[in-house]
Amino acid sequence: MNTIILRLIAERLGVMLVTLVIVSFTVFAATQLLPGDVAQILLGQAATPEAVAGLREAMGLNEPAIPRYFNWLIGLTQGDFGLSYVTREPIADLIAGRLQNTLRLAAITTLISVPLALSLGILAALYQGTKFDRVVSTATVMIISVPEFMVATLAVLIFAVYLKWLPALSYANEVTSLWQLLKTFAMPVITLTFVIAAQMIRMSRAAVIETLNTPYCEMALLKGASRRRTVLIHALPNALGPIANAVALSLSYLLGGVIIVETIFNYPGIAKLMVDAVATRDLPLVQSCAMIFCFGYLMLIMLADIISILSNPRLRT
């Protein structure tokens, strides 16, 4: 670790705090723009003016929105996420279990998809123009061209309905053995790997090939270094920055973007919680979820930036 990295981390963490507050406020303001408040939504078709007024009073929503937001923010500085408007339970409790589920699915997907995608991408670059490269390139585009809900539904039809090898639903709370864990997570993980691996494969391939075209790599090739050696020793380190960025963007999808997978496999994760919160206008819950997504995303891209800087000596000055 050199000083520039430490300085960058300190700087980023500072900026991150500010960003988190701004994002939570933006999301709060955005939710305010949506029609209906929590009392109206909870009453649904029964939301007559009197009923809404009564419920608002009872929920303490008659205080203007902005002070409520700041009260929530002040509570947050003391580690208190506040109470959900809808369930009246502490938000920390609501989120904890869901977040754990989401992180578990994200971790397993990452462990499988990142090594797979990067090795395929780099190999494709190494053997650029060969049959292997063509097959990998075409297959990746084909795979992401299929809508995610279709991949998931097709997987359920084949593996759960016809073959009956795997369960159609992925419960997070019924796992007792490793084998069961694999069975429960197999389909969501396969679906998500399909979705995010393609981007990583294509971007890493493109970045490595582009670096190969730079003068110093051409020089290395001219000097008689093998293509393999040039890719691994000269091109890859310089392509690491863009690759890390592509990986970070793909992985950020695993936090908030997995709503389709959560819905089809009935997996209680945090993306569905946020969608529920928006639908019921449960502001403190929306803000808390948004901050978690934002935090995860900012951490990922900070890591990507650090890798960029470390991999390019000229950026370290």
């Binding site: 759960a160 369960p167 159609a168 819905t263």
Partner: peptide
Amino acid sequence: FFAIRDEPARVNALMSGDV
């Protein structure tokens, strides 16, 4: 008792014996 909001997924869960 739980809900599967996606209708094809709900039918598939019944077909596979999960519900």
